[in-house]
Simulated assay, not measured.
Amino acid sequence: MKIKEVIVVEGRDDTTAIQRALDADTIETNGSAIGESVLARIALAKERRGVIILTDPDYPGERIRRIVSDRVPGCKHAFLPKHAAISKNGDDLGVENATPDAIRAALTSVQEITEEAPAHILWEDLHAAGLVAGPHAKQRRDRLGEELSIGYANGKQLLKRLHMFQIKPEEFREALILVLKEEQQHD
């Protein structure tokens, strides 16, 4: 599988994992201290080939994603679910731990930000669905983010991502129904 876009990752181990999974070029941010020269290379890559951001599913990874997105608008986003990015011994979370299949799946489910009218999903919808409060809120957000390929987020970030990725209310409802059915089966 060959990816046309350049994939933005955090470090060298992530590049190695990507190259085990498919044929792609990467730009490494070298962590969250992203230099101006790296941002300039990402902007050039976005202009010439397009960019997909694939960072670790943790706070530093999300911070890097925000920095790059703010400075280089129009990037595409790929998300690995946390369970696919945990090391075998469970002490590390990152792209470098993902299997080639998990990386290919994340890149196949790339989300593109559009400039259309914002989605009509409201904070009240998240609250009513038990996504911002209650005993299962965190697990529901995690599974919903996985199902919609937008990654894990806290309540405020979830609403922002639903709007940013133009998730339609129907898509939201369908994914939520699936998540709630799974939850009932496990109870």
Rank of each mutant, 00 (worst) to 15 (best):
A98W: 10
K4Q: 13
L158V: 07
Y59A: 15
A102F: 03
Y152A: 14
V68Q: 02
A119H: 10
D23G: 10
C75N: 06
S149T: 05
P60M: 03
V6M: 05
V6Q: 04
L176G: 02
E62N: 08
A78C: 07
R63P: 03
I113Y: 03
I53K: 03
D23A: 13
N30W: 11
Y59Q: 12
A129M: 02
L80V: 12
E47A: 15
G94V: 00
V8R: 07
N97A: 13
D14W: 04
I34S: 04
E47G: 04
A24C: 05
E96R: 11
H163T: 15
E115Y: 10
G50K: 06
G90C: 13
A117V: 09
V179T: 04
T99W: 15
K46M: 13
N97V: 10
I167R: 04
I113D: 02
Q185R: 15
P81T: 01
I121F: 11
R104V: 02
L176K: 07
E147P: 03
V132C: 10
A17W: 00
P100L: 08
N97Y: 07
M164L: 15
V179M: 05
S32C: 14
K88C: 06
G90S: 10
N89L: 05
P118A: 01
D101P: 00
D23I: 11
I121E: 08
I53T: 04
D91S: 10
A102K: 03
L180E: 08
D142Q: 05
H136G: 08
D142F: 01
L144I: 00
T55A: 13
N89A: 13
A129L: 02
R49W: 14
E28H: 03
S109C: 08
T26H: 02
V51N: 05
A43K: 00
R173H: 14
A43F: 01
A85T: 01
G35W: 01
K160V: 11
V68W: 06
I34Y: 06
D92L: 13
P100T: 10
E170W: 02
K156P: 09
A98D: 08
T26N: 02
R173K: 15
Q157D: 12
H127F: 12
R71A: 06
A45H: 00
S87D: 07
P73K: 15
A17Y: 02
K82I: 14
Q184D: 09
A78W: 03
A85I: 02
L144T: 00
I86V: 15
A24P: 00
R20M: 15
I7F: 01
R65P: 08
D23M: 10
E36R: 14
D13P: 02
E112F: 10
G155Q: 06
